[in-house]
Amino acid sequence: MSIYPKNMFFTSESVTEGHPDKFCDQISDAILDECLRHDPMSRVACETYVTMGALIVGGEITTDAVFDVAKIARDVGNEIGYNSHEYGFDINTAAIFRTIHAQSPDIHMGVSKGEKEIGAGDQGLMFGYACNQTDELMPLPITLAHKLAMKLAEVRKSKVMPFLGPDGKTQVTVEYRDGKPLRVDYVVIAASHTAAYVTSDGKFTSEAVKQEIIDKVVGPIVGDLLDDDTKIVINGPGKFLVSGPQADTGLTGRKIIVDTYGGWSVHGGGAFSGKDPTKVDRSAGYMARYIAKNLVAAGLADECLLQIGYCIGVVDPVSVMVNSYGTGKYSDETLNKLVRKVFSLTPLGIINHLNLRRPNYLPTAAYGHFGRDHFTWEKVDATEELLAKVKNL
């Protein structure tokens, strides 16, 4: 590990699927999926905004698909569990507003270049990262934070802890020694809950609930990384009774660090959810992760950062950069040449290689876009080709 000091504490956070921002991400991606299901060539840039009692879906969509925005939003809300005012939002009674128009003809002209190629749907810089800290080839702090958030949802939906609400956040601080994860120093959990589990003075989440979260959520996930010096805080302000959109306005694309590497790696600034794959913010971000992960999985580096830059309407990237932070088995210049030789980095090349025109985006919209094996950009199927071709450079 060479990005950071060898001895340090590093913190990453995640949020549950019921966090208002993630609620919006999921609606935007559900709409994208519905468009792609009927029209794989759909151009979609969908934004969702939620607040107390109301939800707005807007953006630029050009598609042959015909769909019911309100139904899609309600299906997502009911799946998450936002069907009661007790949890800050009832999707079945909320007002839902639709403000959608077609993609700009200027952007369409730049992107549409015929059947054999397309131009980038936007300018920008995208980063991908991988390291050998975990089996997922992800940094440990964000991996643990995501797994804690998923566990909160699991115990809620399975009725192990039915008094929990959809809204929640997790945070993990990992101590590193000599560049390796040593232990978890701090765990922070924010878990919304019903009024029945507040102390008699109305100020605090009950100690019984806190201990149950420690026993059934924190312990099973963090395990041996916990020790006698680990600090665990459940609902730091006291209680988490007012939650969801009644407590916090939500917006698509506002959790870009949660979505990627938890702050461990750099970020280009572009969000993912609600965007079709001609938007290189999304597709090239996925491709950069795929390439970095395959370089690490092939043993060509212990850690790898990849940057790709694009100009709107232009087919080829304006730049490609590989940084192995001194952990590469070959020079970064050689690894850069290898990447350009093995992978197509045009928008259409990326779309075809990762099969990005199918409706599979809703599952990405909570618990991180990276580190879960069922996405095409998480495959490590390019390692043999990388190892074969690097010898000839």
Rank of each mutant, 00 (worst) to 15 (best):
D224H: 06
R156Y: 14
K216D: 03
G168V: 07
K169M: 01
D135E: 08
K216C: 00
G114I: 00
S200C: 08
R177W: 07
L144D: 04
R183H: 10
E212C: 07
T194A: 12
E207T: 11
S200R: 15
A190T: 05
M138P: 06
E175Q: 15
G179F: 10
L182I: 02
P139Y: 09
V222E: 03
V187T: 07
Q211V: 07
I118W: 02
G168N: 06
E136G: 02
V155Y: 06
V188C: 11
Q123I: 09
V184L: 09
G114T: 01
P220H: 12
V198G: 09
L152V: 14
A153Y: 04
K116T: 04
S206G: 14
E212F: 06
A149Q: 04
K147Q: 15
D122N: 14
P139Q: 14
G121V: 06
V198A: 00
H146I: 06
R156M: 10
E136K: 08
P181D: 00
P141S: 04
V172H: 01
V209G: 11
K147N: 10
E117N: 07
Y197P: 00
D178M: 10
I142D: 01
K147P: 03
Y197H: 10
G124Q: 11
Q133P: 12
E175H: 13
K203R: 07
I214M: 01
V160A: 10
I221L: 03
F127G: 05
L152F: 15
G219C: 06
P166H: 13
K116W: 09
D201Y: 07
P166C: 06
V187M: 03
S200E: 13
S158G: 10
T134C: 14
M126R: 08
F127C: 05
C131W: 00
